[in-house]
Structure formats: structure tokens, C-alpha cells
Write a protein that binds this DNA or RNA. Structure first.
Lengths: 158, 158
DNA sequence: ATTGACATTGATAATCGTTCTCATTCTTTC
DNA sequence: GAAAGAATGAGAACGATTATCAATGTCAAT
């Protein structure tokens, strides 16, 4: 029995988080990995932030998370398709919950301060882009898994 | 005075490369940098390859290029807007001539072997994407410089 | 419960792409 | 031609990430 200490939720965030944990748990189990406390902490931090975080961000948000375990577990989560790793040009890589859990979206990347913010697109355009990409993929023998569309520039603060 | 010199003549690469060097030379001069031999070698290698290269690729293509100088000069070229640095998730960063010199395009990124290939998009869709991005940027106070649209997956070989 | 097999943890060491240092060499300018 | 300042390149240093390994936790079967 896991002792995940379910928080006394009032039916809003609690349930969503519980669902999330359940989805991820079965996804990990499916690849013979355990959904341990450390991994749940990692997911909880990422879910709460709701935007891409660097490793220092993650450790700062929950100091109980050990650096080496964080890297290792993030890697496990990435390989299981639960977390997405983004290299944006800054010193640190960014991590966020993967699209099956967070929905399809894109990024606003600040080339001054390195911050990343999620943005959502009109589904019509999204569809057109998908179609074009599929054509190109078919023509070149490429097997696509996903696409990334990022806008680079200076954020409001910079 | 920009000298964008559309060459209507039938000669092949020689003239194009000369034009390229001229453009880049003035661009560097504009920021008080010299367009030295090392830098011209770097540009020649990138132009000849016509696709993103890692640093080992570059040095292998022209062993006269010293590693430390390559990194330093690549950095100068990136800061002058002549070269684009791409971090694609693999160990090495990729470098290619920037869009003003190469034309707007996107990438096919293989998540197995890490290779990157250039692809070109239908201009109609490109326009739609641009419009959407502008709207989002305006809404969030973001000042865009460029966007990147990459397709991730497995290449024909992998 | 107890054992054995094996996954996980976390402090630390090692890795390795990239950046920095600095003495030397090239360019430009007066 | 001499002085000022860029640029070069070999090597040292840096630092984000990964690997190591002894200790601990967990599951399955007895």
C-alpha cells in the first residue's frame, strides 16, 4: 500500500491532481517503474507551477527534492512520456508536464532572461500546420511524433 | 545602401559565395568586428554544407579551424545575426547561416540520431502562423524577433 | 514474518560541451 | 614604423548533467 497522504481536498484542485497521479502512475507501471513519493513530489511541483521550470526552480519549490534524484527521476518521467524536456538556449533545461497531460500548446521564449511561457493556438491554424507537416513528413520518409512552435523575442519585463 | 544583388547571371556558386561574404563582411563591420580569414572559413563551411552542423562537423569539414576559435567566432557571428545557434536536445549545439542569408525555414529533428534537416513551408500557412503569433505577442506585451517551428520524430534511417 | 531479488535514493565523483585565460601574432592608424 | 587594440589558439577552468555505489525501501514467494 502506498501512503500518499491524500490531502483533504475540497473537490477542485485535489481531484485533478489525484487524476493526474493516477494517470501517471499507470503510465509508469506500464513501463515497470514505480510511482514513488519522490516522483509524485516532482509531478506535484510541475503541476502546481503550470509552466516550464528549470531544475533549480524545482528544487527551490520543494527543498526536500534531492538534486541527483530529481535529474534521475525527471529522466524516467521523460522516457515514459510524462514530462517534456525543453532546451531553450539558456544554461538550464526546462521541464514541464507532457502534452497528453497538459494539452497541446506552444512557447513564448524570452531571449534576454530565458523565461518560457505557455501559449495556446487557434485550433484551425493548428490543424493547417499539422496537415502541412504531415505532407512534408510523408514526402521525406520522416515519422513525426510531435511538433514544437516557439516564438522567440523579449518578454514584457525585458 | 543594401546591396542584395540578385544575380541574374548563369554562374554557379562562386558568385553567390562572394555575395554572401560581402553581406556578412559589412554586417560585421557594422558592429566593429573584422571579417577575418577564420570567420570566412567558418561561413564557407556552413554555406557549403547547407544544413545545420555541430562543432565537430565543422572542424571535421575544415581541420584548419581551431576549436576554441571556432566557438569564439561562432559566438561573434551569432551576436551579429549571421549565424543561428540551435539547441536540439543532443549533446552538441547546431549552427547554420541565419535566415536573412538562408531564407525562412524550419527543421526536421530526429529524436533518435539527433540529425537536423531544413524544410520549407507553404507561404500561405506561414502567413497565417505569423498573424496568429503577432496577435498573441501583442496581447501579452511580448516583442517577437522570430519563430521556430520544428517537427520532431524519427528520420528515414532510424 | 522472513528471505531474497531488485528498484530507488542521495551524496559524491566524473563527464564533457562550452567558455575563459593569456601570451603571441596580425591589423589598423597615426 | 610604432603604438593600440583585435584576433588567434592551446590549454585550463567552468558548470550543467550523468554515473557511481553503498544504503535503504519494496514486492513476491515461501
Amino acid at each position: 500500500m502506498e501512503m500518499t497522504a491524500q490531502p483533504p481536498h475540497t473537490s477542485e484542485d485535489g481531484d485533478l491532481l489525484a487524476d493526474l497521479h493516477e494517470q501517471i502512475g499507470s503510465r509508469l507501471a506500464h513501463q515497470d517503474h514505480r510511482y514513488t513519493n519522490s516522483r509524485q513530489q516532482l509531478v506535484a511541483v510541475l503541476a502546481k507551477a503550470g509552466q516550464p521550470m528549470t531544475l533549480p526552480d524545482i528544487v527551490a519549490a520543494d527543498p526536500d527534492i534531492a538534486q541527483s534524484s530529481a535529474y534521475r527521476n525527471l529522466d524516467v518521467l521523460v522516457r515514459c512520456g510524462v514530462v517534456l524536456r525543453i532546451k531553450a538556449g539558456g544554461d538550464y533545461a526546462y521541464f514541464e508536464l507532457a502534452e497528453p497531460l497538459l494539452g497541446h500548446h506552444h512557447h513564448l521564449i524570452c531571449i534576454s532572461c530565458g523565461s518560457i511561457e505557455d501559449i495556446h493556438f487557434d485550433s484551425e491554424i493548428e490543424h493547417l500546420v499539422d496537415k502541412s507537416l504531415s505532407e512534408i513528413a510523408a514526402r521525406t520518409g520522416f515519422t513525426p511524433t510531435h511538433h514544437s512552435l516557439d516564438l522567440h523575442g523579449h518578454c514584457a519585463e525585458c
